[in-house]
């Protein structure tokens, strides 16, 4: 069971405080734990930090790792920048979408998986590469990528 977003915010406030500079950290905490940032979390953060709700949304919508839509427990971020694109990123994405029956930036019905693309993740020497829940996976092939994702909880 995911934790109550407000509880996460409360914990975050103890950790990071309520200053303006805590905002990205608070959001990161919620986003990492829940895979997304629900409205109640945004409102709780706004209230605690005295930053307006719109401004919190503004920050959320700026960063690509934050989401205000529910996402899967597991997030696959496939690099789509040049070194990976040249080494077969397209086929890997194709394979993943076929295998798990979702489009890019969609989430499986069971809430297990979301597939995203992202800009260069600094693993170009071992392209193509992806991050799965932050962990790097490199020198991918379509099969290898599907295996990794299949093995997720």
């Amino acid at each position: 069971m995911p934790r109550n977003p407000e509880e996460i915010v409360t914990e975050g406030i103890i950790e990071f405080g309520t200053g303006r500079e805590s905002l990205v950290q608070l959001l990161t905490k919620v986003n990492e734990e829940l895979s997304w940032i629900p409205t109640i979390a945004i409102e709780a953060i706004a209230k605690a930090t005295r930053i307006s709700v719109a401004e919190v949304y503004s920050v959320v919508s700026f960063y690509s790792f934050f989401s205000i839509e529910p996402r899967g427990r597991n997030i696959v971020r496939l690099c789509s920048t040049i070194s990976c694109a040249m080494t077969g990123q397209g086929e890997i994405l194709e394979a993943l979408m076929n295998e798990f029956g979702i489009e890019l930036f969609e989430t499986t019905d069971d809430g297990r998986l979301t597939i995203e693309t992202t800009s260069c993740i600094g693993l170009c020497d071992q392209a193509p590469a992806m991050l799965v829940n932050g962990e790097p996976h490199v020198k991918l092939t379509p099969e290898k990528a599907c295996d990794i994702v299949r093995g997720l909880e």
């Binding site: 920048t81 040049i82 070194s83 800009s119 260069c120 600094g122 693993l123 170009c124 020497d125």
Partner: peptide, 11 residues
Amino acid sequence: DEGEPGTFKDR
């Protein structure tokens, strides 16, 4: 924040 495509030296 090493984000320039193709850069991974800081890593």
